[in-house]
Amino acid sequence: MSSPASRPVPPAAANLVNLRGAVDLSSLKRPSQPAPQAPGGVPGGPGTQAGQETPGGQGSPELSVTVTEGNFQQLVELSAQVPVVFALWASYSPESAAMVETLERLVAGYGGRLVLGTADIDAFPQLAQAFQVQAVPTAVAVLKGQPVPLFQGGADEQQVRSLFDELLKVAAANGVTGSLGAGEPKDAAPAPLPPLHQAAFDAIEAGDYAAAADAYRQALNEMPSDHEAKAGLAQVELMARLQPLSAQDSEAVRSQAADEPDNLQAQLAVADLDVAGGHVEDALNRLVAFIGRNFGPERETARVRLLELFDVVGAGDERVAKARQALARVLF
């Protein structure tokens, strides 16, 4: 697998822009005494306490821990070094055991570049509230103290692996390239980026999305088949559109879009917000529906934006494949 730093900023990078401050993890104060430990019964994770080996030797003491009120803040702080994946489960959810087992097995294979925390939401309900969990099981990553939604419900191993690869690309784009040293040297250097891609990453870290977009455009001018530059361009353009929006602005544009379904700019803005917030299917369906109702220049503008969001989400994503089929139906 190529180094995560050798690829463009993935779709989840937009989440770091849009979710900054949206979930207040600092409100979960560490108590003077740890909360009761999570009960066992879910294979491979929720029954494993911090500092213990996981059943069957799949995990490691450092890479998979049970989340409690006592260690939660430490895990958030650790996310400045490596991404921390939180698996929120419940004993009443039949999918929880399989999800945790899959996450634990895969995290163990990333050589210390990821850490898994498993949390029983019945034992730690504040965590479910902080992450705004609507269903279990749910997986949410934390990167530099900021949440990045991964998935809810079941996910097969290949899907999870792809999400982890994308998460590590987000981490690299945000300067988080650490390792706990399990199976990989801590000082392993990522493969160098092409100069224009490196310029784009540097601009992203500086918050200069216009400069990042210029770098990706130049890369595409030099090599039109550079798919990573194309995806990177779509992603930083999304980030640039979202950057000036306050929470109040976001609510206002959502209200306008609900009241004016044929207002192009409002629909485009809400689609951006939904992609950045992890509601990808809602965003794509919104634009497909707009295209189906409208004709002329506005329809073409919406179509072009939809194709850009396809690049943001990723061509291999099942939601993109479904939206492409829906788009073909309304166009032809």
Rank of each mutant, 00 (worst) to 15 (best):
M1P: 10
F151W: 06
K144W: 03
Q126L: 06
A108D: 03
F151T: 00
A315I: 00
G153L: 00
V136P: 04
V275G: 05
D214Q: 12
D187G: 10
P195M: 05
A213Q: 01
P36G: 09
V236C: 02
A98E: 13
G232A: 04
E260L: 12
S246G: 09
R241A: 06
L16G: 04
E104K: 10
V82H: 15
D317E: 01
G292H: 01
L284M: 04
P185W: 14
Q33N: 12
E69F: 11
Q325V: 10
P39S: 08
P125C: 11
S162D: 14
A212C: 06
A155W: 04
Q33D: 10
A211I: 03
T138Y: 06
A98F: 14
G183Y: 10
G57R: 12
V148P: 05
W89P: 00
L307W: 06
L233D: 05
N15K: 01
V84R: 04
S255V: 06
G278V: 05
D274Q: 15
L268R: 06
V160P: 03
L163K: 09
E166R: 13
L163T: 03
A283M: 02
E69Y: 15
V304T: 00
P83N: 13
V76M: 09
Q58T: 10
G277V: 02
L307R: 08
K230L: 12
F151C: 03
P190C: 04
S32E: 14
P185Q: 13
N71Q: 11
A141C: 07
A315D: 05
L19C: 05
D202V: 02
